[in-house]
Amino acid sequence: MIGIIDYGLGNLFSIHNALKSINISSKIITSPEQISGYDRLILPGVGAFPEGMKHLKEKGFTEILKNTAKPILGICLGMQLLFEEGEEFCKTEGLGLIPGRVVSIEKPSKDNLKIPHMGWNKLEIIKESSLSKSLEGNYVYFVHSYKVFTKTENIIAICDYGQPITAIVEKNNVFGTQFHPEKSGDIGIRLLKNFANISI
């Protein structure tokens, strides 16, 4: 059973609906005490980094997330919060589960790059992972203005937006996707299925 963490930000029902469409049970959890009843966790999130951390703290989720050995999948802002530090508006400490920082997407003046990076972009798998099985070369849906900067060893997949954008990360039991699998059609569903099948 997957627990979807509700800390007041993000489209929880889309993730729940996407899992339900492939008969994977999930429930939305609103307090850290409930985590013990689930074998894997999803940390969703839409919005700004400081606001995200503030809500996670207020709901009391930070410590338990830092110490759990259960597989965690962070989505979009949820993935960014897994890192040590965010630079959106001001420097904010993240969960620190994976070394790295969240920085703004570069905007080279000559290019006509639009920010946020919004739309379907192609995944390039750079490292084998059970999460990214059968995803190479497929398009997934992104909406974000900040990107993760981390060591290559933590990166499973990237996409190209005039610069490499970290798309999937993994370190031990901690996983993240910058894109929205719950909005990425069949490919996104495949990734959620991969996450549900990761051996514990």
Binding site: F13, S14, N17, A18, K20, S21, Y141, E182, K183, S184, G185, D186, G188, I189
Partner: peptide
């Protein structure tokens, strides 16, 4: 619609 459609 959101229960069964997984694109934006």
């Amino acid at each position: 619609t959101a229960e069964r459609v997984f694109v934006p």
